[in-house]
Design a protein around this nucleic acid. Sequence first.
DNA 1: ATGCCTAAGCCCCTTAGA
Length: 260
Amino acid sequence: MRIASFNINGTKARLPRLIEWLEERRPAVACLQEIKCSDDSFPAAEFEKIGYRAIWHGQKGFNGVAILADGTEPVEAGRGLPGDPEDVQSRYIEADVATSFGAVRVVNLYLPNGNPQPGPKFDYKIAWMQRLRTRLAELLESEQPTVVVGDFNVIPEDKDTFSVRAMANDALMQPASRDAYARILADGWTDAIDTLNPQGGVWTFWDFQAGAWQRDQGFRIDHLLLSPQAADRLVAAGVDKEYRGREKPSDHAPVWVELA
DNA sequence: ATGCCTAAGCCCCTTAGA
C-alpha cells in the first residue's frame, strides 16, 4: 500500500491538479499540506466523488493539513501538535488508517519554515521541532506501525540541495534545524527516501522563481519517516517529479512510500 | 544586496512562502 505526501500550496488553486494526481496514482493514503483554506471551505465532496474520505485541520489563508484515504474513513487520532497551548497554527494531524496488515498510524505535518533567521519565526520552528520529537517518541513506544510524512522544511544534508552556497543562510539548512531533524531520526525513525537514495540528489521542491524548475535547482524538504514496524515493510519510495512540470503546479512535487 | 514567482485576503496592494 502506498502512502503519499503533497504540499499542494492552496486547495482552491490546485484542485484540478490534485484530482488528476489522485486518479492517476491512486495512493491508499494522501496527506496534504498548505491546504490554505478554512475548515468550512475544504472541498471534501470533490474527493468523495472519486472515492477518498478525508479529515482536515484548516486555517483561513495559510497552513492547513488533510489526510485522505482511498475507500475508508481515516480515524482521527489528534489535531494540533501537543506541547504549546498558545500555538494556534494548523500544521499537524494524526489518524489511524485501516490496511491489510492492520491500522497504520499516519502523522501529517507542515513544519514551520523559520525564515527569516535568526528571529522569532526561526525560534518557533526550533521549538516546534522539539515538541515534535517528544510526540514522535511517544508514538515509537506504542510499537504500532507509524508513518510520519509532510513538508518538514529541513534540508537534512548538503547532498539534499542543488547548492549549499545558495541556501547557506536559509532557515531550512541551519545547523539547529538539521540537528533537530537528526535527533528525531536517531530516536528510531527511518527516512525512506534517503535510505533508498543514499547518494542524494533527490529533490522534492523547486522554487517558482529564477527558472529553478527549468534548471533543476531544487532541494529535498518533504520527508517520509517510518517507525521500525513500518520500516520492516519498506519496498520503495520516490518523488512524482513530473507533476511539478504540469500546468499551474505547486512548487512541491508529491512524495510517496510503498509498504508491503 | 535585491528581485526573481505564486496564492489568498485585507482584494490592485500586502503578507507569506522557501
